[in-house]
Amino acid sequence: TTYYDVLGVKPNATQEELKKAYRKLALKYHPDKNPNEGEKFKQISQAYEVLSDAKKRELYDKGGE
């Protein structure tokens, strides 16, 4: 599973699309609303952290993490 899959976006997604997808999923899986989905929330946050940063995203796209 790639970070793009976690957020449900395509690899060519814009920053705005990433932000929108992250917010939607973060609300859905937030531990306050969904106590059993803490791990999913962490995955979503990690994916967004990497993909929202241009340098980290470039490194990730080249095969790094």
Rank of each mutant, 00 (worst) to 15 (best):
K62F: 07
T14G: 04
E16C: 09
L51E: 01
N34T: 07
K56D: 05
E37P: 05
L25I: 04
P35Y: 06
K56V: 05
N34Q: 07
L25Y: 04
L27C: 11
L59D: 12
D61N: 04
N12C: 11
F41W: 15
T1D: 09
G8V: 03
L7W: 01
E58I: 07
A26D: 02
K19P: 00
H30N: 11
K10H: 12
E37H: 14
E39I: 09
E16I: 08
I44E: 01
Q15D: 10
R57P: 02
T14K: 04
G63L: 14
A21E: 04
E37C: 15
K55T: 13
Q43D: 07
K19D: 15
T2W: 09
V6E: 04
R57Q: 02
F41Q: 02
T14W: 01
S52L: 06
K62L: 12
G64S: 12
K62M: 10
E49K: 11
D61T: 03
L18S: 00
L51D: 00
A13N: 01
K20C: 12
Y29F: 09
G64D: 12
E49I: 09
V50S: 04
V6H: 05
D5V: 05
Y22R: 01
L25P: 00
L51A: 01
V50Y: 05
T1C: 15
Y22F: 13
Y29V: 04
K19Q: 12
D5N: 07
L59Y: 08
P31S: 07
K24D: 11
T1Y: 14
K19M: 14
V9Q: 02
K19I: 13
G64F: 15
H30C: 09
Y22P: 00
L27I: 11
R57A: 02
D61H: 03
A21D: 00
S52P: 00
L27D: 14
K40C: 10
Y3R: 01
S45V: 15
P31A: 08
A13I: 05
Y22H: 03
V50W: 06
V50T: 10
H30K: 06
K10D: 09
Y22N: 00
E37K: 07
E16S: 10
V9S: 02
S45N: 12
Q43V: 11
K33G: 08
G63E: 12
R23D: 15
K28Q: 15
G8P: 00
K10P: 13
I44C: 03
V6T: 07
E17N: 04
E49N: 09
P31W: 05
E37T: 12
K62P: 04
K24E: 14
E65V: 13
L25S: 02
A26F: 14
Y60D: 03
E17D: 12
D32L: 13
A21N: 04
Q46W: 10
K19C: 13
P31E: 07
K19A: 14
I44D: 00
K40A: 09
P31F: 06
E49S: 11
A13Q: 01
K55M: 10
T1R: 13
K28G: 05
G38K: 13
E16N: 08
K55I: 13
L59N: 10
Y4A: 01
L7A: 00
V9H: 00
G64I: 15
S45H: 13
K40I: 12
G64A: 14
A21I: 04
K10S: 12
L7P: 00
K10W: 07
A26K: 10
Q15A: 13
P35H: 07
H30S: 11
R57C: 03
G38W: 15
L18C: 03
T2V: 05
L18V: 11
G63T: 13
L59A: 14
N34Y: 09
P31M: 06
G8E: 07
Q43P: 03
A54E: 11
D53Y: 02
P11G: 05
Y60V: 03
G38F: 14
K42F: 09
P35F: 07
Q46F: 09
D61L: 03
L51S: 00
A47S: 03
K24A: 13
K62S: 11
